[in-house]
Design a protein around this nucleic acid. Structure first.
Lengths: 342, 342
DNA sequence: TTGAAAGCGCTAACAT
DNA sequence: ATGTTAGCGCTTTCAA
């Protein structure tokens, strides 16, 4: 017969005792069940709030075996607008729903991703919003299939609904724009095709080239894992010699800033020596002189859709099953112009 | 006699039954208690992992009335490096400790801040890392006092240890640098003194002026709530006319980018028309031409100290009580030079 | 409409 | 070193 530690906080039993009702009635009143006499319910709620009662979310979630107390938010990084903007908006919307958001950063490491997902399941999260790593493990896929899941930015190839940026048009526009200016040798630095959107974006760029009457095979392509240090190296490879392309399109949010910095550090003038199109949030590239032409992704829109999708999935209603696309747009800065004359 | 829903997952009782031991022994083995015969413990752990057992964190936290399952991370915004870099590092370190981080965004709204804190307490978080809003409510302070708390960036005036950027030297250096270049009329756009570090930074700037032999009262100061839209307005007020200061120091991470953009939009050339010093992470200002001189804050260092401080506070050892300061440094870009000639 | 009591899955006090 | 059992604080079934 254990003698547990003192109980500082007040709980349903206290309320019940103080009001001369049962804990069941208290619980029902506090959860807005309609089987409690309205006047009683009112009295209970008032007393609870007067006593400063706050329900223990752990106990609540453990008891009602399924609850929406927590959701997991699993992303590779958070210190880039592609993720931080989405994290902010999701935290906002979920908080309004009374759901707490557990943030985990995979650093694009599949093993960490798996571990974190297991831990989230151990917390009995109602669902997860996830932007998968580039090498999702099979076991991770299985776990995700057993959980209300919403993907964003990247897909792990499970059949969960997701929210993705549709860059096809904007990337094709970018190539078309460069071709119209007279560029014939165009470089592309993008994400590895191991990442779902890496493949899609490369496809869009190639299609854009075709539409513009260029042979897609003449594109000078570098596909990278989305780590900051990879971008600059690719930039030096492509542009570190006189016989270089006259234009560059960067197809990844994490790559854009480092590549742009490297280009700048190499002393190439925009757009005189090189025309540059980056990817992401144009406001981050507005300080550049000239401001950079950007494939602009609408992160807040993407975020609110992702959050809404998850909320719908973990609610009682019909679960949405279709993915959603948010179109990006080409925003003209001043970093593109005619190719340098011979 | 309730007949609850099916139990899909396996639990300690299953393991105990299958191995012919008690649940207590299973629990002890799994938690690395030294009172279990090593060989048995080993067998239990192997069996558990073979059966894919994952402990229910909710039950664990509820039972052992105090646990380190969760901590809260309460910040005004997350889509700016000052917060996202810290969030990333804390998530990393806490995750390594097996602690899950619940992210909440206050949007600098004191009422939301209070609600979120109450919800975190309801989840029985082991502690919170918090960057308070500008108008922390008294009730919020009380709650924080009852919780292992670590502050960063800003202080709510409770006596919790915290990690802060010490900008005194760097800001004084900035003013000194400008004065040495010949500037006599210097503008300062900073955060409201309602925010702890707003007051500190203003003090540093004034002291820097004194040291440089300038009258601090000649500084042209605008103190703002840290919302993105306030910066540009202040910039226009200070520089939207011919009789303007010749230099500007911005003393806030959220203000720097918008102010710099506005300066640029106003057509002022750096450093010919105006010398500019911003605040934050220099890599975000490196794209500018010239790169901006920056009071550079060491966010990752700050973050790892905050996480470590919280981990120490919620551990058994002696609780750290002292705040830590991380010095910032003035990083010279090319945005500062002599004042324009008459 | 309300109450009694059985869990949710785990940990820990006490006994052996 | 191991087992028994009483909780953690809530929700929910069943009975009244």
């Amino acid at each position: 017969m254990p003698a547990r530690a003192r109980r500082a906080e007040i709980g349903v039993v206290d309320l019940a005792r103080e009001l001369g009702v049962s804990t069941a009635t208290v619980s029902r009143a506090l959860n807005g069940s309609d089987t409690v006499r309205p006047e009683l319910a009112q009295r209970i709620r008032e007393h609870a709030s007067a006593r400063g009662y706050v329900a223990n979310r752990l106990a609540r979630a453990l008891s009602s075996n399924s609850s929406r107390a927590f959701v997991g938010f699993v992303i590779p990084y958070v210190d880039t607008p592609a993720y931080s903007a989405v994290a902010a908006e999701c935290a906002r919307l979920l908080s309004a729903d009374g759901t707490q958001m557990i943030l985990t950063i995979t650093e694009n490491d599949p093993r960490r991703e798996l571990t974190q997902l297991q831990d989230l399941i151990a917390t009995r999260v109602a669902g997860v919003i996830v932007s998968p790593s580039s090498g999702v493990l099979e076991r991770t896929r299985e776990l995700l299939r057993g959980l209300p899941t919403v993907e964003f930015h990247r897909s792990a190839g499970i059949d969960a609904p997701g929210v993705f940026s549709d860059d096809e048009q904007a990337l094709a526009d970018a190539i078309g724009h460069l071709a119209a200016l007279g560029h014939r040798r165009i470089g592309y630095i993008g994400q590895s095709t191991a990442i779902s959107n890496g493949a899609a974006r490369l496809g869009s760029v190639r299609r854009g080239a075709e539409l513009a009457g260029l042979d897609p095979d003449t594109l000078e392509v570098r596909l990278l894992e989305p780590a900051a240090s990879n971008g600059p190296r690719a930039a030096r490879e492509l542009f570190g010699h006189p016989d270089r392309p006259t234009a560059l399109v960067v197809g990844g949010g994490t790559l854009s800033m480092p590549v742009a910095r490297e280009i700048r550090a190499m002393g190439l003038r925009l757009p005189d020596d090189l025309s540059l199109v980056v990817y992401g949030d144009p406001s981050w590239f507005a300080l550049s002189d000239p401001p950079l032409t950007t494939v602009s992704v609408h992160y807040p829109e993407l975020a609110s859709r992702a959050a809404r999708l998850l909320l719908a999935r973990i609610s009682d209603g019909p679960a949405p099953t279709a993915s959603e696309l948010v179109g990006s747009t080409l925003v003209h800065g001043g970093s593109t112009g005619p190719p340098p004359g011979p």
